[in-house]
Design a protein around this nucleic acid. Sequence first.
DNA 1: TATAGAATTGACGTAAACGTAAGGGTGCAC
DNA 2: GTGCACCCTTACGTTTACGTCAATTCTATA
Lengths: 153, 153
Amino acid sequence: MKLVSPGEAAANTNDMSDKAGEELVRIGEMAKNYGVTLRTLRFYEDKGLLNPQRDGSTRLYTRRDKARLKLILLGRKVGFSLRDVKQMMDLYDPTGSNTKQLRLALDKSEKQLARLQKQRALIDDAIKELSNSMAAVRQMLSERSAPQASIAG
Amino acid sequence: MKLVSPGEAAANTNDMSDKAGEELVRIGEMAKNYGVTLRTLRFYEDKGLLNPQRDGSTRLYTRRDKARLKLILLGRKVGFSLRDVKQMMDLYDPTGSNTKQLRLALDKSEKQLARLQKQRALIDDAIKELSNSMAAVRQMLSERSAPQASIAG
DNA sequence: TATAGAATTGACGTAAACGTAAGGGTGCAC
DNA sequence: GTGCACCCTTACGTTTACGTCAATTCTATA
């Protein structure tokens, strides 16, 4: 089985291996392409989120793995836990209509959206509170000849 | 040394102990008043953020402790770590102008404000991304007789 | 005095998503 | 044949702010 050699990997986009259209990449390439570390890819595999082929002990990532990784990263970006992502992906059935999967995803998304909005509200609150405090501190600093209130006692 | 007894604690707001105007409360009262757990108060003490008096082995919280706790909780609310809070409070000097303390607080606050704003931007981004995905999923669900795109492969 | 309620210290457990060695193998360019 | 660049597994470490026992003691009250 011939593989993309490390050096020419980037250039060798049209390399065809076993099956037609299957570009197999090793972990280093994969990591570089998606901006993650090797550890992360192995971790995702360990958690059952990825399932690369093997050439001996070397991992070979296929088109499918890339699609899955993209989904994982999207999920992480919008704040899903890896557990959630896995739960949703595990429902995928290539033969069915995937209605279940879509419903679960939608359900989880609604909850996550609510969490995000709540978080945003908390942050806005914190920003206001912090801004107020800062104004007070600036005031105290500008009047440091006058008696100070203390911020710790 | 007479103390506020557990039962009448809430009513006994005017109890004066050793020093004039010093209302000493035990850890249970303190926790209830500020909506934290006993563990939290002991933890803060362990971290050097609080320093209650003792009656034997029993902790007695003074006015000062209350002020400090309020600050800790405010700090937590706006997203400071306990380390940061401690660092700021440790600079307090009852005899000086506390300019240093105020400057540090301001400096940390500016950085924290920046972090909060960045976080808010990330959340807004996530909300958008998530909303888009949800729209797509809803679309797929409404057309589930048509061929589906998959969200996992 | 018996029992319940409140307090103490000590110390391990928790969550999430990896980071960071340690120790070892494979292939290829020189 | 050696020096890199890559790859592998195993497994402990990190971070933060507490939660959760466990075993014991102190105090007030019926």
